[in-house]
């Protein structure tokens, strides 16, 4: 055994390969990524850094900002919770039950991914406004479903649904029937099997779907502004406030709000990653 083969710890960017084109493709990718994503985003960071701490805090302490953030996060949270509950029911029905048109229903779930947000926005507004089909019926029950926070929640439910379904679906499809049968042989009724065996097994995927739906809801703009009514302090979301501040050429305020939202989004991403790592370690499968 000579000393060369095992112990030549020369630093290498890449493991040797016979395939060509590494330099070209990686170089192009990095350049493009830098130009399109990194430079613009670092502009935001640079702008934020140039704000003094008191300036930054003053913008955040503005009641209108605080309210907008509260409304954005509150409605996104409510919508994500609704989506978790109904998203799981929808996924269960798609995965477990056989009915005519199952494929169509399955495909329909992706509609919010494909339908432009502005189109969804005006359509939801038309439906849920007091004179719309659904809004009219809800109005008879004394419920106002548009031009208030309820309207925002409705739009965010629309936007967030596929995130829950598409995250939970693959895990639900791979649930082991034997495990359910095992629970039954041990005397568990169907409700006990679902509550104590199936749901805990799906929990990591459900949490991930919740986080994705929530994160998307916080940043959503197009589908919300038509149905929200956009009343300051009541139904004005944070992304809209950024737009308003920009139109006032108040770049500092727009930047500060954007930074806060970005930080929270990244925190959410981190949480999602932690859930998946934890789940993989504990149960031997990801979410």
């Amino acid at each position: 055994m000579n000393g060369f083969s095992a112990s030549s710890p020369r630093w290498r960017l890449k493991t040797p390969s016979v395939l060509p084109g590494f330099g070209l493709t990686l170089g192009f990718s990095l350049a493009y990524l830098t130009l399109i994503i990194l430079i613009p985003l670092s502009g935001l960071v640079w702008r934020t850094a140039s704000l003094s701490a008191p300036e930054f805090l003053a913008i955040l302490a503005d009641p209108r900002t605080l309210n907008a953030l509260k409304i954005s996060f509150g409605t996104a949270l409510a919508a994500a919770l609704i989506n978790v509950v109904f998203g799981c029911v929808v996924t269960w029905v798609i995965v477990r039950y056989d009915f005519p048109g199952r494929r169509i229903v399955d495909a329909l779930v992706d509609l919010p991914f494909a339908l432009p947000t502005a189109v969804a926005g005006i359509s939801l507004a038309a439906l849920y406004a007091p004179n719309g089909w659904i809004g009219h019926i809800l109005g008879l029950a004394g419920i106002k479903a548009a031009f208030n926070p309820t309207g925002i929640v409705i739009a965010l439910v629309f936007i967030g649904l596929p995130f829950v379904v598409r995250t939970v679906q693959p895990v639900m499809e791979e649930l082991d029937r034997e495990v359910e049968e095992a629970a039954a042989t041990l005397g568990a009724n169907r409700l006990q099997t679902i509550g104590r065996i199936l749901l805990p097994g799906l929990a990591p995927a459900i949490l991930t779907g919740f986080a994705l739906s929530f994160a998307r809801g916080v940043g959503e703009y197009g589908s919300v502004i038509f149905i929200a009514g956009n009343i300051p302090y009541v139904s004005e979301i944070a992304p809209l406030l950024i737009v308003i501040r920009l139109e006032e050429f108040n770049y500092a305020a727009a930047t500060a709000i954007a930074t806060i939202m970005l930080c929270i989004s990244f925190a959410m991403l981190l949480v999602i990653n932690l859930i998946q790592t934890w789940s993989r370690r504990r149960y031997g499968h990801g979410a």
Partner: peptide, 21 residues
């Protein structure tokens, strides 16, 4: 009787253990 009422012990080929327990 249903499977729950039969009071049998069943060991599955791949064990079917509850992996979150």
């Amino acid at each position: 009787k249903t499977v729950q009422e039969r009071n049998i012990g069943f060991v599955f080929q791949h064990y079917a253990l509850f992996r979150h327990m």
